[in-house]
């Protein structure tokens, strides 16, 4: 079954057309990595899926609901499609535990005790059980991003959208975040991951997508994608990445 279905998505900012007709289907349990050069529209596609950006035209169906339909409760859709940001965006005025329990308490109307129990179990899952009472600024980048993952998990989403989750991290902290993401993938979470981590895409993704100039240039299984790319732009892109 499709978890996400994108039909002929277009997005413009004023005169600038950034997404020029994207069609994409992501099945339940699939891990899809999106790669592409800077400014190609990767974040825009991802942010259209939970309507942080409003599509200019086209349809996006998340778990059977058309996110643009007037009767759709977008706040409900967002609990089904969690998001993890490059800059973490943790709430600095709240403890780690409060960051993770805010959604369950204020969105799901869960009681405080139940929410904290859930919060502690999610923090344990991401390896931060002992940081519950700390404030975000007392954590390393890798720890912050793991809290952010726990926060998005707190709504029990059906899919998580990751926008370059490791790009703001020091190299030695990337691994711990990718580990948590691998674990989620192994548990069957549907994941859409914009990333520059080619290793992660190769090892974990079911499909890898190359976006350039606002369209999908290649959509393939990781083996084909990396070893025998058909698209000329992708060949150039992979060549440039390999040089680094």
């Amino acid at each position: 079954m499709e978890m996400i279905k994108i039909i002929n998505l277009h997005k413009s900012y004023d005169q600038l057309e950034v997404i020029k007709g994207i069609d994409l289907e992501i099945k339940s349990g699939e891990v899809v990595c999106i790669i592409g050069p800077s400014g190609s529209g990767k974040s825009t596609v991802l942010r259209c899926i939970n309507r942080l950006e409003t599509p200019t035209s086209g349809h996006i169906i998340v778990d059977g609901k058309d996110i643009m339909a007037p009767e759709t409760d977008i706040n409900h859709v967002r609990t089904e499609a969690g998001m993890v940001f490059q800059q973490f965006n943790l709430f600095p005025h709240m403890t780690v535990l409060d960051n993770v329990t805010l959604g369950p308490i204020k969105v799901r109307n869960m009681g405080k005790t139940d929410a904290e129990e859930l919060g502690h179990s999610l923090l344990k899952k991401v390896g931060l059980a002992d940081k519950a009472k700390n404030y975000p600024e007392q954590l390393s980048g890798g720890q912050k991003q793991r809290v952010a993952i726990a926060r998005s998990l707190s709504l029990k989403p059906k899919v998580i959208l990751f926008d370059e989750p490791t790009s703001a991290l020091d190299p030695e902290l990337v691994g711990e975040v990718l580990e948590v993401m691998k674990q989620l993938a192994a548990e069957g979470m549907t994941m859409v991951v914009v990333t520059h981590e080619m290793g992660f895409a190769r090892d974990v993704a079911d499909r890898v997508i190359f976006i350039d100039q606002g369209i999908i240039q290649e959509d393939n299984c990781p083996e084909q994608f990396f070893s025998s790319p058909k698209n000329k732009r992708l060949q150039d892109f992979l060549g440039k990445v390999a040089e680094h």
Binding site: L52, N75, H76, T79, H93, K106, V107, R151, S152
Partner: peptide, 29 residues
């Protein structure tokens, strides 16, 4: 930081609750 509001909205909080629980306490300081 607009990322704060985005994070609030992305966990399903309404605009009002995002203001009340996330933006206002930080702005008030």
């Amino acid at each position: 930081d607009p990322g704060q509001a985005e994070a609030g909205r992305s966990i399903g909080l309404t605009r009002g609750k995002t203001m009340l629980y996330i933006i206002w306490p930080q702005a008030f300081k």
